[in-house]
Structures are given as C-alpha cells and as structure tokens.
C-alpha cells in the first residue's frame, strides 16, 4: 500500500501542477441593451452557423499556459438579440434549414474569421483584451451575395479583485458590444435597401481595407455616418 502511495504521489503532484497552469473560462450569453435606433423596415433571415451554438477557443500561451474559453451559445444569442432590435422582422434559421422555404428580404450569414485574446503576462499591463473578427455575408432572396463585410471588434478590461476570469469575460462582452456598435453603424438602411432592390452585388467581395477605413473614422469621433 505504502509503495503504491509512493508511486502515485509524484504523479498526483505533477497533475496538480499541470492543472495549475491551465485556465478555463465559460461565458454566459451576453445581454445587449436595446439600441437607440430606428429599426430597419426589412424582414431578415438570420442563419446561425453550427459553430455559433458551441464555440470553444483553446490556446497555449507562452510559458505553456493553456487557456480554454467556452463561449457556448453567446454568439448565437448575441446576433439574435441584435438583429431582433435592428430589423422590423427576424426569422432565425439553423445551419440545416432550407432558406427557400422561408420568405424574407435578405439572408444574413455571420461567421467568425478569428478570435484572439491577451492576458496581463503577455502585455505587461493589468488588462485582458479580446479581439473577435466576425464576417457578415448578406444575400438577396435569390441567393445573390450583396454584401460581404469583416467586422473587427475589440474589448478590454482591467483585472479586478474577483480575478482574471471575470476580466476576460467582461472583455469578451465588451468586444461583442463593440461588434454590435460597428454593425449598427455599418448597416445603412438606405444603402442596404438600395442594394437589395437593385439586385446587384454592389459590395460583393469588398475588401477589409474598405471596412477598416470606416472603423478608423468612427474611433475619431465621427460617429460613423
């Protein structure tokens, strides 16, 4: 028995040490405040991709620190809330639904191009930061791509006495709110209705540089119009 214990103890200690090098954060679905905007008079079909139902980001940082960030359904609920506020009518489609069975003015397909984060050890500050790059593809009812936008969002939160996990959660929520602000500004009602009405792919394949220019203007306090 003693021999078994002696053999098992180093293994258990090593497991404990390794467990101490990892962090796991689970994000509860965020609540986006009702935006102070006039809703756009369109019926939008929002296709929620399968990855939005259970998004998990795993990354090994310098120094062998393993981080697991479980966003769960946060992205799905975020888009459902936001688009529910932004448009007069919203139909949520799952990844498997056949859009031809539904009536709508435009179909929007969001996806995540990239998810990144930084911790205080890396930046030598007291802050956690989260970057999420979403991509929005907008199709007309005939299935033609009319808009293709990258939305680069950023959130930052200082560490608190409650610990790093809370700060990272707050940074992720702030990044989603940032994405919401960008999308509200980017979805110009007149332009969207015009491009849907004309049936032309006016912004198809628009480059990320175009959108970045819009974002810089917004940061400078121009409020993005």
């Amino acid at each position: 028995m003693k021999v078994m214990l002696r053999k098992a103890l180093p293994g258990a200690l090593l497991a404990l040490l390794l467990a101490g090098c990892g962090s796991s954060v689970t994000l509860d679905p965020p609540t986006i405040p009702k935006p102070l905007i006039e809703s756009i008079p369109l019926h939008i079909a929002l296709r929620i991709p399968a990855e939005f139902e259970s998004f998990v980001h795993e990354e090994e940082l310098l120094g062998n620190e393993q981080w697991t960030i479980d966003l769960g359904r946060s992205n799905a609920e975020f888009f459902e809330q936001l688009f529910g506020y932004m448009f007069d009518e919203l139909t949520v489609l799952s990844a498997d639904d056949d859009e031809s069975q539904f009536q709508f003015d435009a179909l929007v397909e969001p996806s995540i191009d990239a998810f990144e984060f930084s911790v205080p050890n890396q930046t030598k500050t007291d802050s956690f930061a989260v970057w999420i790059r979403y991509r929005l593809k907008v199709y007309d009812p005939e299935g033609q791509l009319v808009e293709n936008w990258p939305v680069s969002a950023y959130g930052k939160s200082l560490t608190t006495t409650m610990g790093g996990s809370d700060a990272l959660r707050r940074a992720a929520v702030l990044a989603m709110r940032d994405a919401a602000a960008l999308m509200i500004i980017r979805f110009d009602p007149d332009e969207l209705i015009r491009s849907l009405g004309s049936g032309t792919a006016a912004h198809e394949g628009s480059s990320s540089e175009d959108t970045d220019t819009v974002q810089v203007t917004v940061i400078e306090g121009d409020n993005g119009d």
Partner: peptide, 17 residues
Amino acid sequence: SLFPWFEPRTAPAETKG
C-alpha cells in the same frame, strides 16, 4: 440607456461631435 452611442468606439471624442 444610450447604447450604442457611448461605447468606447462610438462615444464623441470632442465636444464638436
């Protein structure tokens, strides 16, 4: 209460906004 007009990205940086 004023979402999204006072988010870090959208809040006016100067009084002229």
